[in-house]
């Protein structure tokens, strides 16, 4: 059986190779901090396998994460001079290669889809080929590897170090933002252990007037969006708001159709996700990947859609659930 952990090791190994390159890159004024950050990230990816299986203590990894946060947060990481082709060379190469350049790029989704549909559920010798529940992750991993092989053939690139160097430049440009989504996942779990959800639920209940169904619909939807904005994740907001309002008031009290209330309630939360820097993987990572000056560019592009869409969700729930 092919396991998702193998791909985490591969990513960890890529980070470690890059860390060694960064350490030797004298064009980077902060090469020691940079190498330490990515080296710890690589070790963490591999060590994490045993943490999720409860075979290794999580505390050393926790210390490493906090060290990475300090390295990234106090700007102790940097980037070297990118060693790549000039725009003119790229234009010439694009003219020469034409649409063949798209073949490797499109290989990634094609392989990912094949893994998620055709290979999913297939077994070999009584064991599933792909680890159950990880088909999409594995598909992305396979897609990237197959695309790299096809790309090296089409481009006649013989040096394996070239894609590693190019990938490293992209990562160095993203910098500390790489770690933010995983830090936020941790914060979410700490919030729930400490009982932040129950508190928010209690506050919401106290502002809710009784007996007014449509007001309750609006409070549920807006509450989902606002709580998602704070937590960065609609999945964290959903159980809290549903236990406070969705189930007792809208479904049991007012007799709303649970399918409409819950499906639309979750989507109201997604409107909050569109607007929050806390959802770093959706909102901040794209800004760094696209090398935007304004980190909040994607959020600013999404807010004017999120607000009317939240209003639509309130109307849809009010009209169809009762």
């Amino acid at each position: 059986m092919i396991k998702s952990e193998w791909f985490y090791w591969l990513i960890g190994a890529i980070f470690l190779i890059m860390a060694v390159q960064m350490l030797r890159d004298r064009t980077n004024p902060k090469r020691y901090g940079t190498a330490a950050f990515w080296g710890l990230l690589g070790v963490g990816f591999i060590y994490g396998t045993w943490v999720v299986q409860d075979k290794a203590p999580p505390e050393p990894l926790g210390v490493a994460v906090l060290v990475m946060a300090v390295l990234g947060g106090f700007k102790l990481t940097g980037k070297g001079v990118r060693n790549t082709t000039t725009p003119a060379e790229r234009d010439a190469s694009a003219r020469r290669l034409g649409n063949r350049l798209f073949i490797p790029a499109l290989t990634i989704p094609v392989v990912a889809v094949l893994c998620a549909t055709v290979l999913k559920g297939q077994s070999l010798g009584g064991e599933p080929i792909l680890e159950e529940g990880s088909e999409t992750i594995l598909g992305l991993g396979f897609g990237a590897i197959v695309a790299l092989v096809i790309g090296m053939i089409i481009l006649r690139e013989r040096r394996v170090v070239t894609p590693i160097n190019e990938g490293r430049s992209l990562l160095e440009a993203m910098g500390w933002a790489m770690l933010l989504p995983q830090m936020l996942a941790t914060l979410g779990s700490l919030f729930s252990t400490a009982g932040v959800g129950e508190q928010v639920g209690r506050i919401t209940e106290s502002v809710l007037p009784s007996g007014q169904t449509y007001v309750a619909v609006a409070v549920y939807c807006i509450g989902m969006a606002v709580f998602t904005f704070v937590m960065g994740n609609a999945f964290a907001a959903f159980p809290v708001m549903t236990a406070a309002i969705g189930w007792p008031v809208l479904i049991q009290g007012a007799g709303g159709d649970p399918h409409v209330v819950l499906a639309v309630g979750m989507l109201a939360g997604f409107c909050g996700t569109l607007t929050t820097p806390m959802a770093a993987n959706f909102n901040i990572v794209p800004a760094t990947l696209l090398e935007l000056k304004d980190q909040y560019g994607p959020i600013k592009a999404q807010i004017p859609t999120a607000i009317p869409l939240l209003a639509c969700n309130i109307v849809i729930m009010a009209v169809f659930a009762f």
Partner: peptide, 26 residues
């Protein structure tokens, strides 16, 4: 501290896109 370690380990899937960067860069 343990929560930070556990959180990092169990959320590694959000960083899986890194695996596509070498071919995209190439």
């Amino acid at each position: 501290i343990a929560a930070f370690g556990d959180g990092f380990a169990s959320s590694r899937s959000v960083t899986i896109f890194v695996i596509t960067l070498p071919v995209i860069g190439l």
